[in-house]
Deep mutational scan, measured.
Amino acid sequence: MVQKSRNGGVYPGPSGEKKLKVGFVGLDPGAPDSTRDGALLIAGSEAPKRGSILSKPRAGGAGAGKPPKRNAFYRKLQNFLYNVLERPRGWAFIYHAYVFLLVFSCLVLSVFSTIKEYEKSSEGALYILEIVTIVVFGVEYFVRIWAAGCCCRYRGWRGRLKFARKPFCVIDIMVLIASIAVLAAGSQGNVFATSALRSLRFLQILRMIRMDRRGGTWKLLGSVVYAHSKELVTAWYIGFLCLILASFLVYLAEKGENDHFDTYADALWWGLITLTTIGYGDKYPQTWNGRLLAATFTLIGVSFFALPAGILGSGFALKVQEQHRQKHFEKRRNPAAGLIQSAWRFYATNLSRTDLHSTWQYYERTVTVPMYSSQTQTYGASRLIPPLNQLELLRNLKSKSGLAFRKDPPPEPSPSKGSPCRGPLCGCCPGRSSQKVSLKDRVFSSPRGVAAKGKGSPQAQTVRRSPSADQSLEDSPSKVPKSWSFGDRSRARQAFRIKGAASRQNSEEASL
């Protein structure tokens, strides 16, 4: 019999049943779409005989028809080659250093092939080196495509196609095609072959870009420019304004007297070369007005044109410092986490200390709560409330009815002989401070409620009492009544008793 458990639990079988086999339907690529829901599959020993999904071999995947050992070796080799080519560490840098020397040698020989004295001697060596480079780069490109299958997102032919569309893979295939075209054109020995050789060798310069396949330098440059984009835009904007204004004023001053400034384009060329401190010297002002304007705008514009270099330099320094700090933080993070875990385990398992309490023990206690009866409008029989619902239920009951529930009420002091009981919340009678006064009792026990209740009776009109401690106690149990005489010590004692009862009640409510 096959059962599914969608909550991750395992159904224990009877003692008479045989052992169960467990598997996940959602992990089987050969299962139909209706059953690939991630549910837990529990099947008996007879299920494989019936041809269940556990008995079927995997229909898809890279190692579907391969033995386990061969499949493990296949995956291990794939991961190894992918890490060597895409994430070089340790001795893997030897291969990348060899590729760099190969590319650099091709670049140097290409430069010498353009010089007439070394053209014949360098062409033969360059031809052999180009063949070696094409073979190495071609094999490396196909190995990269194959090894990318170790990543989940690059599996299958669609994943390989996605990997081949990456920018550096596109550069690799462009350089490979250009190198093959250069060799094919150079072997023909005609004029067209020579011109094609010179034009296609430009694409071989892109080999130097592939040295940084992970794009660390470009990411660093982009992060620095993005972090200081506002400062760079401000400096370039002001420098551009200085360039336009200086070129226009010098053009007006030199026009008609200097042949170097016949057009405004000549003035812009002079301004750009001057403000960037290049100074070719092919154009320069000759009149005193033009020289004065050139000197003034040079002092202003050079500072703004040189400002981005300082901004980028400081940004690079701060970014490198931040990377070093992050690297040290990552080195200290795992030991710190292990130290915290060890300290907590020692703290939680220390049996010699009796003052340690688990944080979840508070929620494991069961509280007896009286249940409210809507018919009699009273609190009758009580029941046990689950631990997770205790706090919310108690808050709702307290807010609606005004009752305070507590588990172990402390012993109440008995009323003394000299001070009789003053009210239901005086704190001297046991069992009276455990409940709050309802809204109805407060209204009818207050002086205003009594006056409103007995407004029509003649006794209420004739008998008038001065405010005393009895009425103030019933009005607000948490307030201290004001004494009408300064020498009345009994009223002071009563006030301290009320304060103590109120503080105890607040602490009990907070504990609930």
Rank of each mutant, 00 (worst) to 15 (best):
A193V: 10
L268F: 00
A337T: 04
R214Q: 06
Y284D: 11
T287N: 11
W269C: 13
L339R: 05
S55C: 00
A265P: 09
Y280C: 09
A306T: 00
P335S: 06
A178V: 11
N350H: 06
A253T: 07
C242G: 10
S342L: 08
R210P: 13
G418V: 04
L101H: 07
P335A: 14
G9D: 02
P335L: 04
L307P: 02
G290S: 15
T277S: 06
V182M: 07
E231G: 14
I273M: 09
L318V: 01
K319R: 12
L293P: 06
D266E: 14
Y284C: 00
L243F: 03
A253S: 06
A265T: 12
S247L: 12
H328N: 14
M211V: 02
H260Y: 04
I209T: 12
L356R: 09
A343S: 06
T274M: 13
L268P: 07
G271R: 15
W344R: 09
I278F: 11
S314P: 05
E254D: 10
T194I: 13
A267T: 13
L339Q: 04
Q188K: 01
A185G: 03
L200P: 08
G281W: 10
E130K: 14
T263I: 09
Y362C: 07
K283E: 02
G159E: 08
E119G: 05
H228Y: 05
K283R: 02
S358F: 01
H96N: 02
V320I: 11
L206R: 13
D355E: 03
R213W: 11
E231Q: 10
F248S: 06
L197P: 13
G8S: 01
R353H: 03
C169F: 01
G256R: 08
T378I: 04
T114A: 02
R353G: 07
L243V: 08
G279D: 14
F304C: 15
R213Q: 12
V225D: 13
D212A: 14
Q204H: 09
T234P: 04
D259N: 10
G281E: 12
N350K: 03
T276I: 07
S195P: 00
G315R: 06
S247W: 14
V225F: 05
L107F: 03
D259Y: 00
L85R: 05
L221R: 12
D212V: 14
T217I: 09
R291S: 09
V250A: 10
V250L: 03
L312S: 01
Q341R: 15
S199R: 01
R201H: 00
F261I: 01
T276N: 01
A306V: 07
R207Q: 11
A147P: 07
I278T: 06
W360C: 10
L351V: 07
N79K: 08
